[in-house]
């Protein structure tokens, strides 16, 4: 199987915490490379304590085996550290469509686009998000932190 096809396979694995985004779109899969017939998959954690990493590894394993790729290694790299800068515009609009404000310097309410917002908590339901309240539509929403 060629490398492009494998990218497509991994593109089909949802992020365990934000399932409408794939682990490829999230920037978790960093590199795919064949080394003497063995596929090397390099992944990186979003946050060092990200509890989803073991689920992500086992999902990659499951998907690759299902596609008949049996010789592979999954490596974790820390450098360069994961950044929200790796999310594409398309991915950001997907986040917005499920009510999560995409990473941005000036945070906007994902529901009414107002920038009159208030911080509720620096920390949200997962490591990568914070809580805010929109003063305009009064809705509470999560924001994908810029890191």
């Amino acid at each position: 199987m060629n490398i492009y096809k494998i990218w497509d396979v991994l593109e089909g694995i949802p992020d365990p915490e934000i399932p409408n985004i794939s682990i490829v779109e999230m920037g978790i899969v960093r590199k795919l490379k064949f080394n003497d017939g063995i596929l090397n998959v390099t992944i990186t954690p979003t946050y060092s304590g990200c509890p989803a990493m073991s689920v992500i590894k086992s999902e990659i394993k499951k998907h690759l085996i299902k596609e008949g790729v049996n010789d592979f290694e999954i490596n974790t790299s820390l450098f360069p550290p994961w950044t929200t800068g790796w999310l594409s515009e398309k991915t950001k609009s997907k986040l917005k469509s499920i009510g999560i404000a995409p990473p941005k310097k000036q945070i906007e309410c994902p529901y009414c686009n107002s920038n009159k917002i208030q911080l509720v908590s620096e920390f949200g339901s997962t490591l990568c998000k914070s809580y805010h309240k929109c003063i305009h539509c009064m809705e509470i929403f999560e924001n994908f932190k810029c890191i």
Binding site: P45, Y47, S48, G49, C50, P51, V120, S121, E122, F123, G124, S125, L127, Y131
Partner: peptide, 17 residues
Amino acid sequence: LEEDIALSNISLDLFGR
């Protein structure tokens, strides 16, 4: 609640480190 989540998140970051 928010502070409960904050302290647990910081704890998780530190467990990761």
